[in-house]
Amino acid sequence: MDRPKVKGWSYPKSIDQFPMGSTCKSDHLTSINAGWRTVKPVIDQEVCINCLKCFLVCPDGAIDKSSKELEIDYDFCKGCGICAFECPVNAIKMIEEVK
């Protein structure tokens, strides 16, 4: 999986540690989005025909195609269900998240 990762970050402890204005390095994620999900997509690799439609339509880029089998970055998938809706062979099931 090749996806940006959450970077370490600690809040400034004193005023002189704050930057001038709210600027920061790019590629600077400080929190994940997994908690937004009520359902999560699970790919049935047996059914998948590797058409990559799900990779194409995900607004969050959470589906990674760099390995032989597709991988979902559950840190950043929001469970919107577009991938499952668009999959031509119904290889993706949306299953309820359990805490």
Binding site: P4, V6, N33, W36, P59, D60, F76, K78, C80, G81
Partner: peptide, 10 residues
Amino acid sequence: FYGHKACGGC
């Protein structure tokens, strides 16, 4: 463009 906080399905 990754890890943004747009609504799911945006």
